[in-house]
Design a protein around this nucleic acid. Structure first.
Length: 530
DNA sequence: GCAGTTTTCTGTCAATTATG
DNA sequence: CATAATTGACAGAAAACTGC
């Protein structure tokens, strides 16, 4: 008897190992085993069993680790797709879907009763929905009941989205159904988790990298046992082994934080959609400022658009043209800061529009002024998303200023740039119209996919990369850009409509080009290109 | 049941790989 | 250069094993 194993190595193969007679009873698809690979003891995941093998020399499996399979079938199929789309080995893709303790081969039989979790089941908070919100809730609910594989784009402010999530989860928990909900940052996820735990108690699990190994494993186990039915997490949460899954929520779908920047370089939002497709489930993308790509798909009816518009609120905004004001702090901004401080009100200043968690609701007493010293750090990035991001960040800031009833001062070198003008007008439609036209003209996403081939740290000679570029131009049906050198790293960028097809070609070509783990990295749907 | 040894577990720290 | 997310290495602690 032979077992086909996946190993967490950058080698794109399924490995055959012999199953000794003593282990034939124990071995099963989905269990982990210990094997020797190139002199090292390595964890293998059993993906198949057979009577034959065409390998010549075959080593034996040393030991079966698990008493019960730990890899669910969805994880096999999802990771298989990841390996093809994001250009990594199946084993590497599988491994990221498991808690780190399991990856290392630990067995972890939890002996003692777990400490009592804080189960403060507060009084059932009834959330009141407006008629419009109810209609949105119903449309999603009905799609779930019909077992549709449908992606919804929920275009609404945060409070409205969270109410709807709450209502959906409350409803689905009543039917013992599972929900995955993803948030871009750990802080946001924790905030929502606390809120949900206080309502739904034990049924809620958390999943992100700030959990320590033991916690992560416990949450994973609670999900598999069906004790936790709702998981709230960051991008890793897309791999949650929730039982009876019925809905995947991706909040702030436009966020760049969903993109993993090390191998495999997946985007959790796109994976959520893929997982929905594989398992035939409903996916809800939520956003107050939808990404241009998602909005485009909604317009094309690929996604269903659910919109809750809110009337404009008023706030004082002052735009300052920095090209006429060479100082970091224009006199106007300076005066406003002083006024605000004199009134004993807080001031928030953004040196750049940047920063990951900065825009989230930290606690200050009263904020009188929000100032942006420059918008250029985002606007001038060599990045097809720079306009989109500028628009999104400014829109978020304006909303924050409205909530705080604070004044807003924005200094910029590009006061007439459409992303800034539209953001100040609160006109998403107009911004979208201009941006999508621009993307279409230049053949940028969502009309095409980018694929970056990254050559690290000057290890590769330029001639070699140029030769590769030539080979690619010849053999591959894709536009090839570069190589471009940027801070010691060479980039080649490909533009294609069919990622899977191109990747197969790439594998052939790069295979002979020495894709060592460290030397060449392939990044599909990158956030940057040069 | 004991003492010594080996294995497994756990939390912390540092490294890594990004960005702005 | 600072920050953030994430992972791996490491060291000390706890648990399991062994031979008597």
């Amino acid at each position: 008897m032979y077992a086909q194993l996946l190993l967490n190595l950058p080698v794109d193969k399924v490995f055959d190992y012999a199953v000794p007679a003593s282990l034939q009873e124990e071995i099963e698809v989905g269990k982990r085993v210990w094997v020797e690979f190139r002199g090292r003891r390595t964890v293998g995941y059993v993906v198949g069993l057979s009577d034959k093998s065409d390998q010549r020399r075959i080593k034996e499996i040393e030991r079966v680790i698990d008493e019960k399979p730990i890899v669910d079938s969805f994880l096999f199929s999802l990771s298989n797709w990841i390996s093809k789309y994001y250009f990594c080995s199946w084993g590497e893709a599988l491994a990221i879907g498991l808690p780190s303790v399991l990856r290392k081969g630990q067995r972890r039989v939890v002996k003692k009763e777990r400490k009592k979790r804080l189960e403060k089941k507060e009084k059932e908070q009834k959330v009141c929905l407006s008629p419009h919100q109810i209609s949105v809730f119903k449309q999603i609910k009905e799609a779930i009941e019909r077992d549709e594989n449908q992606v919804f784009l929920l275009y609404a402010e945060r409070e409205e989205r969270e109410k709807i999530y709450w209502q959906l989860i409350d409803h689905l928990l009543g039917q013992e159904k599972g929900v995955i909900s993803l948030f871009p940052e750990i802080e946001t996820a924790e905030r929502v988790a606390r809120k949900f735990i206080s309502c739904f108690g034990e049924a809620v699990a958390r999943w992100h990298s700030r959990l320590c190994a033991r916690e992560q494993f416990e949450e994973w186990q609670r999900m598999r046992e069906g004790k936790a039915k709702v998981v709230i997490g960051t991008r890793l949460g897309v791999f949650s082994p929730v039982r009876n899954l019925s809905l995947i929520i991706v909040d702030e779908e436009e966020s760049n934080s969903y993109k993993e920047e090390s191998m495999p370089r997946y985007n959790a939002r796109d994976l959520a959609i893929k997982r929905g497709e594989i398992e035939g489930k409903v996916v809800v993308l939520g956003s107050a400022v939808p990404s241009v790509g998602s909005y485009y798909r909604a317009k094309k009816k690929e996604y269903r658009l659910l919109e809750i518009r809110r009337g404009q609120r008023w706030t004082k905004i002052k735009l300052i043209d920095r090209s006429r004001q060479p100082f970091s702090f224009s006199p106007f901004l300076k005066r406003k800061i002083e006024e605000s401080l004199n009134r004993k009100e807080g001031v928030i200043l953004y040196k750049h529009l940047g920063g990951k968690g900065i825009l989230k609701g930290e606690e200050f007493s009263k904020i009188g002024l929000i100032g942006v010293i420059s918008t250029e750090s985002v606007l001038n990035l060599p990045n097809f998303l720079s306009s989109e991001r500028t628009f999104a960040l400014l829109s978020t800031l304006i909303k924050r200023a409205e909530e705080e009833k604070a004044e807003l001062v924005i200094q910029t070198y590009n006061p007439s740039h459409f992303s800034i003008v539209c953001a100040l007008e609160g006109n998403y439609e107009e911004f979208y119209r201009k941006e999508i036209a621009y993307r279409k003209e230049l053949n940028y996403p969502p009309f095409l996919h980018f694929i970056n081939i990254i050559f690290k740290k000057g290890k590769q000679k330029k001639e070699r990369i140029e030769r590769l570029a030539e080979i690619l131009k010849e053999k591959v049906e894709a536009e090839v850009l570069g190589p471009v050198l940027f801070s010691d790293i060479y980039y080649l960028t490909l533009k294609t409509k069919e990622v899977l097809k191109l990747n197969e070609k790439l594998k052939e070509i790069l295979g002979g080009f020495g894709r060592g783990k460290k030397r060449i990295v392939v990044d599909v749907d990158p956030l940057f290109f040069f």
